[in-house]
Simulated assay, not measured.
Amino acid sequence: MKRIIIYQKEGLEIPEALKKALRKSLFEKGVEIVGPENPEGAEAIVVLGGDGTFLRATPLAYRLDLPLLGINLGRLGFLTEVSIEEAELALSALVAGKLQIEKRLLLEVEHQREVFYVLNEVAVLKGPLGRMIHLSVFAQGEYLTTYYGDGLIVATPTGSTAYNLSAGGPIIHPQTSAVVLTPVCPFMLSARPLVLPSEMEIEIELASPSPEVHILLDGNLNLILEPHERFKIKKAKRFLKLLTSPTRSYFEILRTKLGWGEIKL
């Protein structure tokens, strides 16, 4: 591997330990480091930051069809799996081509003839006036139901540990081919999270004349959904390539981040 894109949070100060790891595993091995504005010939993208930075790098990685490796300089770090302590080992393995690549489901969102790509979730949420909204949902062209409440989350398995989890949705293993619909503060006891096959095309329509309803894509991009407007969500044509931690499994990361432990009797 001769060329790597470094994608980092703006204004980020890189810790000395990480600078040392970058120098030993990349610079001293003749790897050229470039920014996202100069991607020609790059073979991977290394994200320095938290999960938000990782999500902002996702559309670039998808467009270039390059694998992503996240080094966590944020807080929780479900997507930026590699800690600073693991960075040198992970980067050396990346250069040697020894890191495992996982394929992660992406969602393709079509809104007003524009197309966007989402790794974690699409969240349709009420505006600042605080009025509950009606969202009619269609799956493969068939009417499913209308949610009445503060909004609706459509999450991927990767995103199931993000906003979906906070809203009471299930954790879904990232290799599962599914999406989950999780209502946000629904005004009906029968509204529960619903898991659907990822191959199903989902359409969401704002069925009430509510002003300022927002479509939030991965917490980064905010679109406005007009009254009685409908938009589409479907599985993207390609997967996102994710480079995983060389020392910890998904279950170990899950246990650590969620504070799970054995119960001693």
Rank of each mutant, 00 (worst) to 15 (best):
L206K: 07
V34E: 10
V213I: 04
I215V: 15
A44C: 01
N120Y: 04
V47C: 01
G130M: 13
S198H: 14
A87F: 07
S83G: 08
A155F: 07
T161Y: 04
K126I: 09
W260F: 10
E121Y: 01
E40M: 00
V82N: 10
E16C: 11
T161A: 04
L79S: 02
E85Q: 11
E114L: 03
L165S: 10
A123N: 07
K20A: 13
L94W: 04
S190H: 11
E226V: 10
K234Y: 05
L206D: 02
Q112W: 07
T256Y: 15
R3P: 11
L73H: 14
F116V: 15
L105K: 02
G259D: 05
L66F: 13
P59H: 00
D150T: 01
L94E: 07
Y163W: 14
K257F: 03
A207C: 04
A139R: 14
L144C: 03
T58G: 04
E32Q: 13
P67Y: 15
L26M: 09
H173E: 15
T176M: 12
R104W: 12
I233L: 09
N164D: 14
A155I: 06
A167W: 08
F78Q: 07
G74E: 07
R104G: 08
V95C: 03
S208H: 13
R3Y: 09
V179N: 00
I84R: 04
I33A: 13
G149N: 12
L22D: 01
T161S: 06
N164L: 11
K264P: 00
F78P: 09
P209A: 01
G30W: 01
R248H: 12
E43R: 02
V180I: 07
V46Y: 00
N164F: 11
L194K: 08
I33V: 14
G159N: 05
G130P: 12
L55S: 06
L221R: 09
E262I: 15
A61I: 09
G141E: 05
V213Y: 00
E16I: 08
A96N: 09
L243G: 03
M200C: 14
P193H: 10
Q175T: 12
P186G: 08
L223F: 01
